Computed example of a mutant assay.
Amino acid sequence: MDLRFATFSEIDLDNRTFEIRRFAASTRLKDSLARFGILDPPWLQQKGAQYIAVDGFQRLGWAKENGAKGAVCRIFGQDCDIREVWSRRIEKKIFESGINLAEKAQIMSVLIVAFQSQEIPSFFLSGMNVSNRPDVPAKWALLSAGGTETLEMLASGAIAERAALEVAEWDERSRDSLLSVLKALKCSASIQVEIVEHIREIAVREQKSGADIIEAPRSREILMSGDLNHRQKTQALRTLLAELRYPRLSSRQNQFRRDLEALGLPSGIRIIPPPAFEGNNWEMELSFNGPEELRKIVHSARSIVESDRLDAIWRWDRRPGSPLPSAAARQKQDENKTTSNEG
């Protein structure tokens, strides 16, 4: 690339062909420009009698706003192949500084057009920690095509990459609705994925969109609550979605809690069911400060243990002798419902 001074009358700053927007406010560049001016020459490409910007959109804009007549720039010739220009532009972007999810989505969208999914150079994918699975670049391109609102949420830093890819193929309303919720909840990546998967599975089973689940009255009551902080909202939403996804298990858990309360166990005793109420390995946990307290706990619990009141905990749906279906059976029932609805 040649290095030369280009005047702003020669540069078409309205042409944004090569722009990769950050969609996140940062004062670092502005502060650096104010202190030192332009240290790294912007890149241009000649197009007829004018130039278009390739890299350095903000630097060029700052120079023009501050009364400069132009700037020293590196120039791509008019005959330079567009794939070569994009390759250098993207390589500089990737390895110069950390990129956010919005930038990654835009870059992947460009690479798909320039190289086709199967021909994208591997060093670009590894440089961005992007899987080389055939479907992944297309998902990033869909996120890029989502528009400004989607890209701003991706750039916020609050959305986990895997969660973003999981919703890439959702309809626009559902995708943006869920991304907005995840941004507000500020929860971990694993919890974001859990929420996404539950909503998707519920939506498929009930033949609804993801937005229908998110915007349902019970969900909105949690998300719009002024009494809950973001952690409490996250936990309340997870509980609700688990209840909707596995209704029989949730019903059993609620019944178990009510039975324990009715039983009136001493405060030092906990009865712990097997995971998902599957199997017969129940546990009892005792908490005490010494032998005297232990004697009191055992004495107060003896009448409960020797009565038939304890049997209620092992009954399902209040039907004596009716066993609780295994967790595998309950999950199979839910999956069958989902499969039948998909068909």
Results as ranks from 00 to 15, higher is better:
L265V: 15
P121D: 04
I82F: 06
P42R: 10
W62I: 14
R295T: 09
D317C: 05
R88E: 07
S174H: 14
L265N: 10
E292T: 13
A163D: 02
T234L: 09
D79N: 12
S287N: 12
C187R: 02
A49S: 02
L223A: 04
S26E: 12
I159M: 07
S267K: 15
E261A: 13
E283P: 03
L101I: 10
S177E: 11
N229M: 07
L324E: 00
M1D: 06
E261H: 12
L154A: 07
G70R: 11
E194G: 09
W170N: 03
P320E: 02
V305C: 01
R88A: 06
I271M: 04
S225H: 04
V181M: 05
T338Q: 04
R35A: 14
F277Y: 07
V167Q: 06
A158R: 14
L265R: 07
K30R: 15
M284T: 06
I159E: 00
D227S: 15
R22C: 05
D308L: 06
R22A: 10
S287Y: 07
C187M: 03
R231W: 09
V113L: 03
W43G: 05
S307D: 08
P41L: 01
S131C: 05
I195L: 15
L324H: 01
V196C: 12
L228I: 08
C73P: 02
W314T: 01
E278Y: 09
F23I: 05
E10N: 02
A160G: 14
M128L: 14
D259V: 04
R4P: 02
S26Q: 12
I20W: 04
A328V: 15
Q45F: 00
S326P: 02
L125G: 10
